[in-house]
Amino acid sequence: MKRALFIYNPMSGNRLVPRELDRIIEKFQENDIFLDMYRIAEDNSKIIEAMHRKDIDMIIGAGGDGTIGNVANWMIKEGIKLPYGTLGTGTCNNFTHNIDIPEDMEKAIDIICQGHSYSVDVGIVNSKHSFLSSLAGGMFVEASFKTEPELKQKLGPFAYYLKALSELANLKSYPLEIDTGTDIYKENAYLVMILNGTHVGSFKRVFSESQIDISDGLMEMLVLREGNPIEIANMFLMMMRGEDYLKSDSVLLLKSDYFKISSTEKVNMSIDGEKGPMLPIEVEVRKKAIEVFVPYTKL
């Protein structure tokens, strides 16, 4: 029998994990995996200590993108090389979508129990924080911070759309300097995002899967330049519908293993949907830094 550290956020999304806890334990036990349960709290030192136990075969994170990203961050900081299973129980679940983990809990558990895995890239921010799917700043980022938990539980990802739409009438651009290690760009931009996958926030197809490889040691940066507000609103609607908006002159698309972003103004950044540091920041991409369980079709 294998042993797993199961780390969950009881408040994520619709609070599925606490409601289905007994069934989750039963499902893993049916597959000869015994769970040591840990609940995310203000002080998570006991969880980090438990990650170093010699009898642990894998780590499982259950929650939204913030929780799944935090667990990965602890693993990377502590040098934990165990395979990582992810159960997306939050509002958007971008990382689990990026690696084709279904939202259906039992199907997701089946994938972990089957044991197929591969390694994915991780972004390291200011040599301190890691992210699995996204780092973003500017337009819509504040909206995600301000979206009420009750609204997210009732409406899911659509809650972010409503908040973002309310901001379109008050677009604000920021002066940005972007260094990719080989080139420097100076732009007035509404939004800057570094992505490791096709999903971010409530947008399900920011890029097509053919454009993205989450284990190539590179990440994509999308910059939404200052422009005509009507065109920006149309692009936003195209993003919502999953249509191709990348040919617009308002979009700057970069790809690198290093980014430095600075501004003369205060710009809040989010890391996997959670509040992150203010600009300036440096991002280093670590190739295949963490091993995750995936469907065999993803191999």
Rank of each mutant, 00 (worst) to 15 (best):
P149Y: 04
P149G: 05
E150T: 02
E150G: 00
K152C: 02
K152T: 01
K154V: 00
A159F: 06
Y160A: 04
K163V: 01
K163C: 10
A164I: 11
A164L: 07
L165C: 06
S166V: 03
A169I: 05
L171N: 08
L171P: 10
S173C: 12
S173M: 08
P175I: 06
L176E: 09
E177A: 10
E177V: 12
D179P: 09
D179V: 06
T182P: 05
D183L: 13
I184T: 13
E187T: 08
L191W: 02
M193L: 13
I194R: 01
I194S: 02
N196S: 12
N196D: 09
G197N: 08
G197R: 08
G197E: 02
H199T: 14
V200Y: 04
G201A: 06
G201M: 00
K204I: 05
K204T: 12
R205I: 06
R205K: 15
R205W: 11
S208L: 11
E209L: 10
D216S: 07
G217N: 05
L218P: 05
L218W: 05
M219T: 04
E220G: 03
E220H: 14
M221I: 04
L222C: 14
L222H: 10
V223I: 15
V223S: 11
V223H: 10
L224E: 11
R225A: 02
E226F: 02
E226H: 01
E226D: 08
P229K: 05
I230Q: 07
E231T: 14
F236P: 10
L237T: 12
M240P: 01
G242H: 10
G242Q: 13
D244P: 01
L246F: 10
S248D: 14
S248A: 13
S248T: 12
D249Q: 15
D249F: 04
D249S: 15
D249M: 06
V251Q: 12
L252N: 10
L253I: 12
L253F: 07
L254E: 07
S256K: 04
S256A: 15
D257K: 04
Y258Q: 03
F259N: 06
S262A: 09
S262L: 08
S263V: 05
S263N: 07
E265R: 06
V267G: 03
N268Q: 15
M269R: 00
S270H: 13
I271W: 05
D272P: 00
D272M: 00
G276Q: 09
P277T: 03
M278I: 13
L279M: 09
I281H: 11
E282D: 07
E282K: 11
E282P: 02
E284A: 05
E284C: 04
K287V: 01
K287G: 01
K288H: 07
K288M: 09
A289W: 06
